[in-house]
Design a protein around this nucleic acid. Structure first.
Lengths: 331, 331
DNA sequence: ATCACGAATTGAAACGTTTCACAACGCTCA
DNA sequence: TGAGCGTTGTGAAACGTTTCAATTCGTGAT
């Protein structure tokens, strides 16, 4: 910057003003400085800016698995919203490993990030509290933060399941099966709970729970094969799967033989509305999570958090998912 | 850091030494300083370190689309390899937009990144040369860099297609169809070229080219439907799809009616080996790109680039993909 | 008792910005 | 003529590290 100042025949402070508050500088000077910048190929040093500013213009985002479209979409939306605030999103994947999660938190702390968005692996690590105490806003993503001092943005899985099963009832089904597992996963438990609530409210409706070892296509196919072997009278007339992969596997098993038609004999609905859901042989109904809204809301929460740090009660945003009805339930 | 020094009763320089070269400091002192650090909750300021060091410990990675598993895998591998060098990967998605690409390059430049990994949208922007001239190593990813002053890591799509079609010939097929498009895409052209080369070498083999408007499941299904309507004698006995999505659509169309069996009547092979390829009704043969190796190699190239900057001839790494034979070709 | 030496520690400069109190200048107005 | 004002521009301090030459100290050799 000093070189630019010399080349333009002005002082260092003026160059800084041209960069940060050009309206305070005479237009002829501005031009001269810009000319010098171009000629010298000057590029600001962000480290020095940050050092001076005390915090960076970046926000850290640590997700469980960047390969998961759910998080990819959140990251994408967060990046866009951050850009509106002239912030950059730094992305980290913990891959379900608490040590990697901690390493990222530490790294972001050292970088004095503007704020931290975290989809936590398990227990909230102590360093998170330290961050907050030092004035860095923290927002939990995809985790209900009630009971913690942190803001949070999450999705109501119980409500999502309610939507799905109510839809099955609406199209006249009563013998409903819930397929999902392992039940150690919160998502699986919540979605099952939502299903149970709806069935409880519908006189004549019954819920059968089929637990799977994983949320995968293959697990779904196994369930489908099992259903095919059962006497027709004992089969459900609708299946709600805890995610789309299961539903796809089920659909494969059912359509492969052609003995059972979807949705005529069995209606099928999944969860997550992955991209592939609309491209299956029978387009799959599903429940879509508002990933974009989650990412944007998280960034907003972060930006709105003023220096009031402790004064402030944390805000908890809980989104409700959206039903996407396709042929697998509506015919 | 000054506070830590005071608390531990040592000088500022000693604290720095404890952090960066503990072997040069008496062990009792080291302990005392660490105690002070813990007590005060001291966290290094990365901006100051970078300012002093002149460059950051981050490398920038700009990909076309982080939602694409190909790039997700590359990013993942690059992150891991970078960690071995005590570097952090900053991820950006250009989304095929040259302006966003430029914005990321500028941002990374301001951050004085250690190096830049770029999967370029189109023409290489001028700022890329500026970066290199100032000593920041640049590595092109998924783009052959011959003819440019930049290192590059890419995959040989022609060779991949060769593998696929040679495999089809090996299992006895001769009437082969290539399905892919639009042919404006380099990948599509290269894969078609590879197919043509193999067929040209195989006496008796013939290649039919079926152009599609997109590389999607739906486009594949349309091709499948068209094949079903053709008189059996005129149908190919093997299809090589330019990517897995096309192959999945084709498979859906063929298996839905049950008139044509895969692989008995038509063998089918895709490209990319996406996760879903192994979970289709008939597991899909495919060509796997060594995404992990690409990410690692790119980081290695970056790290190995010494200050020799201009002296150095750029290195070009070209990986050969790998055949993944599943039931859709082998029965 | 002196010296040389290595190990441990110190102190200050430097990195490249931003910020802010202040100076310089040209006006207008009394 | 000079006071007062607004507009431009200046210069130095400060941000928190790392680095390196210089200093101190204890030890063994002479």
């Amino acid at each position: 910057m000093r070189d630019v100042a010399t080349a333009a025949g002005v002082s260092l402070g003026t160059v800084s003003n041209v960069l940060n508050a050009p309206e305070k500088v005479a237009s002829t000077t501005v031009e001269r400085v810009h000319a010098a910048i171009d000629e010298l190929g000057f590029v600001r040093n962000d480290a020095a800016r940050q050092l001076r500013a005390g915090r960076s213009r970046s926000v850290g985002l640590v997700v469980l698995d960047i390969g998961n479209p759910f998080f990819t979409d959140i990251a994408h939306a967060a990046t866009g919203r951050a850009r509106e605030h002239d912030l950059t999103v730094l992305l980290g994947t913990s891959g379900d490993d608490p040590r990697i999660e901690r390493a990222f938190i530490d790294a972001f702390d050292e970088q004095r990030v503007h704020g931290l968005l975290l989809s936590p692996v398990g227990e909230l690590p102590e360093r998170l509290h330290r961050l907050r105490r030092r004035g860095t806003p923290v927002v939990l993503v995809d985790r209900d933060g009630r009971g913690t001092p942190f803001h949070s943005v999450a999705v109501d899985d119980v409500a999502g399941a309610t939507l799905a099963v109510a839809h099955l009832c609406d199209v006249g089904r009563r013998a409903i099966a819930f397929v999902g597992g392992p039940s150690g996963l919160r998502q699986v438990r919540d979605r099952r709970q939502g299903a149970e609530e709806v069935v409880g409210r519908h006189p004549g409706a019954r819920l059968e729970v089929i637990e799977t070892p994983a949320l995968s296509v293959l697990a779904g196919r196994a369930v489908g094969d099992a259903l095919l072997r059962r006497p027709p009278a004992t089969r459900p007339d609708a299946v709600f799967c805890a995610n789309d992969l299961l539903a796809i596997g089920l659909l494969q098993a059912l359509t492969m033989t052609g003995d059972l038609r979807v949705p005529d004999d069995i209606a099928l609905i999944g969860y997550d509305d992955i991209e592939f859901a609309s491209s299956t042989v029978v387009p799959l109904s599903s429940v879509r999570q508002p990933t974009g809204a989650i990412g944007s809301a998280a960034v907003d929460l972060l930006v709105e958090t003023r220096a009031d740090v402790d004064a402030e009660e944390p805000t908890h945003v809980l989104f409700t998912p959206e039903l996407v009805a396709r042929r697998s339930t509506t015919g």
